[in-house]
């Protein structure tokens, strides 16, 4: 049931995704602040399908040359492509402290045992500025294969970016910067090079008192 209703292709399903900051309070406790978060969901057949967005509407927000979003989408499988609009929670006081930990954690599951590669490209005006590539091996748990990218450190570029964003006095200014900031995550089967998931992330700043929010869309080409 999750196909078409959550971030899942026929081969891989995203279970959870978060970018966070951990601030130690004392030697035994710390505060965890979630900038963005996609929690576990268990859609059923009675849930509606995700809304769709025409992938051509966002081509220029992501790399367009070789290996860009267009080429990836045309290669398919097209059921592996999603757009996530995040309303990021920046309601936190940031100080420069080397004890702070900025991290990203994500989890995936599959019915297949494989090795996955996750490429995460941060883009400014559609051009890649930094890329992180991670390889994960499967763990067999409760009848399926689970992949965990646990507490991957946020890169220096992203930490600086968050700090600069926080220094802007008004939310509309932050949103104006975020209009040209995007992230493209491509999860691939390391051995077959098949695209398992491709997720395009775009951002605004949350105005909610309830923290980070998001909408998920299927990317299509009608």
């Amino acid at each position: 049931p999750w196909q078409g209703r959550s971030i899942a292709s026929s081969k891989l399903r995203m279970l959870e995704f978060s970018a966070f900051l951990e601030q130690p309070q004392d030697p035994e406790t710390f505060n965890k602040h979630l900038f963005v978060h996609i929690g576990q969901s268990n859609p059923t057949y009675s849930d509606p399908y995700l809304e769709s967005v025409d992938v051509r509407q966002i081509y220029d927000k992501f790399p367009e040359k070789k290996g860009g979003l267009k080429e990836l989408f045309d290669k398919g499988p097209q059921n592996a492509f999603f757009l996530v609009k995040f309303w990021a929670d920046l309601s936190i006081n940031l100080q420069d402290d080397s004890n702070f930990f900025y991290g990203v954690s994500s989890q995936y599951e599959s019915s297949e045992n494989m090795v996955i590669t996750s490429s995460t490209k941060v883009c400014s005006f559609g051009k890649q500025v930094v890329e992180k590539v991670e390889t994960e091996y499967a763990r067999f748990e409760s009848g399926r294969y689970v992949f965990r990218i646990h507490r991957s450190p946020l890169c220096e570029y992203m930490i600086n970016f968050i700090h600069k964003l926080k220094h802007l006095p008004e939310k509309y200014m932050m949103n104006s910067v975020l209009e040209n900031f995007t992230i493209l995550q491509v999860v691939t089967n390391r051995d077959t090079l098949e695209t398992l998931l491709c997720i395009a992330y775009v951002f605004e700043v949350s105005t909610s008192e309830h923290g980070a929010q998001h909408h998920i869309y299927r990317l299509v080409k009608d």
């Binding site: 809304e51 209009e179 309830h210």
Partner: peptide
């Protein structure tokens, strides 16, 4: 300057929900 001026997101064909922040807890 940049050779290509990007179309603002607001002027693109996107679902209405794209601009509606969920108010869920």
């Amino acid at each position: 300057g940049r050779a290509v001026e990007q179309v603002p997101m607001r002027k693109r064909q996107l679902p209405a929900s794209f601009w509606e922040e969920p108010k869920l807890t």
